[in-house]
């Protein structure tokens, strides 16, 4: 059974791009291991030969015509929610030195 170490929690948090406080790391270490211990009971279920379900209504490849649809969202409105905009472009922090 998998048990998370402190390093695992830090690594997973970094993969998910979440900065955790020291307090959160120690709290999560206990709580997440409790949750993983609980979900471990699934191993008792024999699923040999059974396929996964991704879509309960068994819908596949829902198609529509490849047409331009105007939903009436002007870019200026959509850009209003961006934390940083420069000349109608999305502005991000420096990526490379």
């Amino acid at each position: 059974m998998a048990r998370l170490s402190k390093d695992d929690v830090l690594r997973l948090a970094h993969l998910a791009r979440i900065e955790l406080s020291e307090e959160e790391v120690s709290e999560f270490l206990i709580e997440l291991n409790e949750v993983l211990a609980y979900v471990q009971q699934l191993q008792s279920s024999d699923t040999e030969g059974i396929r996964e379900t991704n879509q309960v209504n068994a819908l596949t490849n829902v198609m529509r015509d490849d047409q331009l649809i105007d939903y009436g969202y002007p870019p200026s409105e959509l850009l209003k929610n961006l934390p940083a905009v420069l000349d109608d472009q999305i502005q991000v922090k420096r990526m490379v030195e």
Binding site: A13, L15, A16, E27, F28, E31
Partner: peptide, 15 residues
């Protein structure tokens, strides 16, 4: 905190 817990568990089970 709860969003963080779920994101971390989700990241784990998909890793």
């Amino acid at each position: 905190k709860e969003a963080k817990r779920r994101i971390i568990i989700g990241t784990f089970v998909l890793s």
